[in-house]
Design a protein around this nucleic acid. Structure first.
Length: 585
DNA sequence: GCCGTTTTCGGCCCGACTGTTTTCAGTCG
């Protein structure tokens, strides 16, 4: 089995889990977790690095020992340390760590004294009342475990950013209207604009914190109060979304906002910087000995360690602190920078609006061009277009463009990339288009090598402009297909074509790290709505969020170009002169 | 187990809340 970075990360994470359950050195545990994260995010494939004799210690958090273990995993597909740890505690036990309320100490006790090895056995033990007899467990803990393990078994716990945002807005407004609340703001992964959100963190300032947490616990949508103290409370809303509220004094607002925005890795790095300067950074402020020297604003916190303010989207400890230190933070793209949209559908395939309505809706939203890219014939259930219907649509768009003012429709297609990498329509009709958007909609589970070759072959077609939703993922229902994005990105660079960031909330595909890779390789990204209705053109904002997390600036994004500057870039990808098209077709 | 213009050894982020504890361990973010 060829090893990928995610496999190595998985091994390291499992080692960390098992070490933790077995009471290992907590710093050693952390070293494995840091390494797992670092390898998982590393752009270059470790297997390739090993094959090329590259220095694995160039990967952050990898030292002599873990470099050796990576080599072992690449060579043998397994790791002897993991095997010996599993001999002491079965790997299935690590699933228990993900149950809220259970940490390593309790999991160890559950395993050693009750021989609980899975979520199912945990639920059983709780239901039979065997857990509260253990030291350190009580009846309440047992009841919580029972409830939480059920939820864990029922469904995944992350929500789409768009859903979480919709739930958070009314709650934030309701809190803001309270006379006891001075300021209130979302923090956490929601503020960092992550594609999915596990729970929502809200920060408020007040001179009367206890009144605020009390009011919060009484919000109409709350189904359960998990915890409630004078400065902090956690609740669950209808639908299972958890909200954590923290209330601080106004002079601590900036420190607390930094702290609760995270990410955890960013905070750790920030505090370490503080430590080097003899400062203690916590959610109340920045302190030298007992004296607060900063904390009212986020800017003051960053300034205390010699840094400019860092946008929340970048706070993942992926180089943003170094970039801030070097005055090299990106000027992140904004929604208003987008001049057009290069991926949208109409009633001709599976969309819900006509050509004209889509054009008018795009114009209303301030866009100056919109590419019509209906599906191709292979996608029969979406009424995909064959060559004749596409030819008719091309004529229809020409006529419409002659009538419409202030918006230009571009002629395109979202053509299926077939299993062997060929495109689903004849070259002759593709060559008449302004752009060809290629996408896979089948055979998502090909082995990595074949999937990659399939995409690379499609990109080599003389009419190939843009690779749509490259990973093919649907958050929560379909994983990203196994694809070597580094090779795809290099091919895009070599071929002069583009990668799409599909802005549908359940896609958001490219991922943030893939956006960054595109930028690093000089490949332009197109942020597209993939709208199937007029309203879905608004999805662009979610794509912009993701692009910001990927460090993209205005210049890195294809559709920030004016139509006049866009056309030659598209034309370069449509090398129709490379085609020998028979006159009769 | 990683890491280093204070260090190749001795550090490694910090505080709130819960439940079971009778002064604090465990968990969480």
């Amino acid at each position: 089995m060829p090893i990928h970075n995610a496999d190595v990360a998985e091994v390291f994470n499992e080692i960390a889990d098992l070490l933790e359950i077995q009471g290992g050195n907590p710093f050693r545990v952390r070293a494995y977790r840091n390494a797992a994260r670092s390898v998982g995010e590393h752009a270059q494939n470790v297997r390739t690095m090993v094959a090329q004799g590259a220095d694995l210690k160039a990967i952050p958090a990898i030292g002599d020992d873990l470099a050796l273990k990576i080599r072992e995993i690449v060579a043998t597909g397994s790791c002897s340390l993991l095997a010996s740890l599993r001999a002491q505690v079965p790997s299935a036990v690590t699933a228990l760590l993900h149950v809220p309320g259970l940490g390593p100490k309790r999991v160890r006790r559950l395993y050693e004294q009750l021989h609980v090895q899975s979520l199912e056995e945990l639920a059983q033990a709780a239901a039979q009342g065997r857990i509260h007899t253990l030291p350190g467990f009580g009846a309440l803990t047992e009841a919580h475990i029972l409830a939480n393990v059920q939820m864990r078994l029922d469904k995944s716990r992350r929500f789409l950013f768009a859903q979480a945002s919709e739930r958070a807005q009314p709650l934030l407004a309701w809190l803001a209207a309270s006379p006891d609340v001075e300021r209130v703001e979302a923090a956490g992964s929601l503020r960092r604009l992550r594609d999915t959100v596990g729970d929502i963190d809200i920060l408020a300032t007040s001179r009367n914190p206890a009144a605020v947490t009390r009011q919060f616990a009484g919000y109409e949508d709350v189904t359960e109060v998990l915890a409630q103290g004078p400065t902090r409370a956690s609740v669950v809303l209808r639908g299972g979304l958890q909200i954590d509220l923290r209330v601080v004094e106004p002079e601590s607002f900036g420190a607390a906002l930094t702290y609760f925005t995270g990410s955890k890795a960013h905070n750790v790095a920030l505090r370490r910087l503080g430590q080097e300067r003899g400062l203690k950074i916590n959610e109340y402020g920045v302190f030298r000995a007992q004296t607060r020297i900063a904390g009212e604003t986020e800017e003051s916190v960053y300034a205390s360690v010699g840094l400019p303010w860092i946008p929340p989207e970048l706070r993942e400890d992926r180089g943003e602190i170094e970039a801030a230190r070097d005055a090299a933070l990106p000027a992140l793209i904004a929604h208003v920078d987008l001049r057009g949209d290069l991926h949208a559908h109409t009633v001709a395939s599976d969309g819900h609006a006509s050509l004209r309505d889509m054009a008018l809706a795009a114009r209303e939203r301030g866009l100056s061009y919109l590419a019509i890219t209906d599906h191709s014939k292979r996608l029969a259930m979406a009424h995909g277009l064959d060559a004749a219907r596409l030819a008719a649509q091309i004529d229809e768009i020409d006529q419409l463009n002659a009538q419409l003012m202030g918006i230009t429709l571009l002629k395109g297609i979202e053509v299926d990339i077939l299993e062997d990498g060929r495109l689903d329509l004849p070259d002759a009709v593709l060559a008449r288009l302004d752009l060809v958007v290629g996408a896979i909609h089948s055979h998502f589970d090909l082995p990595r090598e074949r999937q990659t070759e399939r995409i690379l072959r499609a990109m080599d077609h003389p009419c190939f402009t843009l690779l749509a939703h490259p990973g093919g993922r649907l958050i929560d229902s379909r994983d990203t297909c196994d694809l070597d994005m580094l090779r795809v990105t290099r091919k895009a660079r070599e071929r002069g074509c583009f990668l799409e960031l599909d802005a549908q909330p359940e896609r958001l595909d490219l991922t943030d790290t893939a956006c960054r890779m595109a930028k690093d390789h000089g490949v332009l990204v197109s942020i597209d709505s993939d709208a199937h209705s007029a309203a879905e053109l608004d999805n662009l904002r979610y794509g912009v969020n993701q692009a910001r997390r990927g460090w993209l600036e205005k210049a890195d994004v294809l559709n920030t170009r004016s139509l006049a500057r866009l056309r030659p870039l598209l034309a370069r990808t449509m090398r129709s002169s490379a085609l020998e098209i028979p006159e009769s077709r």
